[in-house]
């Protein structure tokens, strides 16, 4: 991917920073003139990954979440959300729709949202070392398909 623009933001694992993260990504992408649906999809996916980093990765502790967003020359977007929290022992199980490793009131839908709203999702994680979620989406894919048809 030929990189046209990139941002990298570190923030504390505080719940109010979830909104900060999704609004920052939206602002970063605005110059690309994304559709409302694309913007909604990406904001929701970022919200899921950052919430997971804070709620599951760090739990009661405070740590740093890193968000890196890259924009490619073709309108391809790549977003990484990284925490140095507890990590995930069984990634396949964690990614299963409606699975939640949390006893609380959780739908277990975070990964399902990320996978449905983005083109691809990669997860790298190890217990005790933290988690990296990398998501990609090509902007303008709907218009390109419509123009071809």
């Amino acid at each position: 991917m030929q990189i046209k623009n990139e941002i990298c933001v570190d923030f504390l694992s505080r719940m109010e920073n979830v909104a900060f993260a999704r609004l920052t990504v939206a602002a970063f992408l605005l110059a690309e003139d994304p559709t409302l649906e694309e913007l909604g999809d990406i904001k929701t996916a970022v919200s899921e990954a950052v919430t997971n980093a804070i709620v599951h990765g760090y739990r009661a502790a405070t740590g740093t979440v890193r968000m890196r967003a890259r924009l490619g020359a073709e309108g391809d977007v790549e977003i990484e959300i990284v925490d140095n929290g507890c990590g995930i022992a069984d990634i396949a199980q964690a990614r299963k729709p409606f699975f939640s490793g949390d006893g609380g009131e959780r739908a277990g839908m975070g990964f399902l949202v990320m996978e449905s709203f983005m083109d691809s999702v990669e997860v790298e994680s190890a217990p005790g070392e933290g988690t990296m979620v990398r998501m990609r989406k090509r902007l303008g894919a709907a218009q390109t398909a419509a123009a071809r048809a």
């Binding site: 909604g40 929701t44 009131e105 959780r106 739908a107």
Partner: peptide, 13 residues
């Protein structure tokens, strides 16, 4: 204006 899976969890609850 916006809702993620936390909202779904809230409704299920």
């Amino acid at each position: 204006e916006f809702m993620d899976s936390s909202g779904i969890g809230m409704v299920i609850g």
